[in-house]
Design a protein around this nucleic acid. Structure first.
Length: 104
DNA sequence: AAAGTGACGCATT
DNA sequence: TAATGCGCCACTT
């Protein structure tokens, strides 16, 4: 596992329940603003349920269609259980997205 | 070492 | 508003 991947997991672990963060925010926070796509790849490889990767969405607040564990429905269900509200089928409300400045 | 992959994002239509 | 096109980049082969 690469260094970058470790940093990604470190950050994802810190996302509080009831909030979500975007791929781009994570990339930016790690000093690689253009690596959003790579972040997605890394999470896709992840198998550990120790990491709350369901709390990561894209810039529009939408769920990843190819979510690893059981697809986006499963991801949606987890988020709903954590109190996240959806504006439509796959899109979370914008105010549930953590501000970049608040990402640890 | 080089090429292929894709949970992205921005600009352009 | 939605749909492409394309650059990007860590990983894997």
């Amino acid at each position: 596992m690469g260094d970058f991947a470790k940093q990604v997991y470190f950050l994802v672990r810190k996302i509080p329940s009831g909030k979500v963060v975007t791929y781009g925010q994570i990339a930016k926070k790690l000093g690689r603003p253009k690596a959003a796509r790579a972040v997605g790849n890394i999470l896709h490889q992840n198998n550990s349920s120790q990491i709350p990767c369901h709390r990561v969405v894209n810039k529009e607040g939408k769920l990843a269609v190819n979510y690893r564990f059981g697809g986006w429905r499963c991801q949606r269900e987890k988020l709903v259980n954590e109190g996240i509200k959806f504006k439509d089928e796959k899109g979370v409300e914008f105010d549930s997205i953590l501000k970049t400045s608040e990402v640890e």
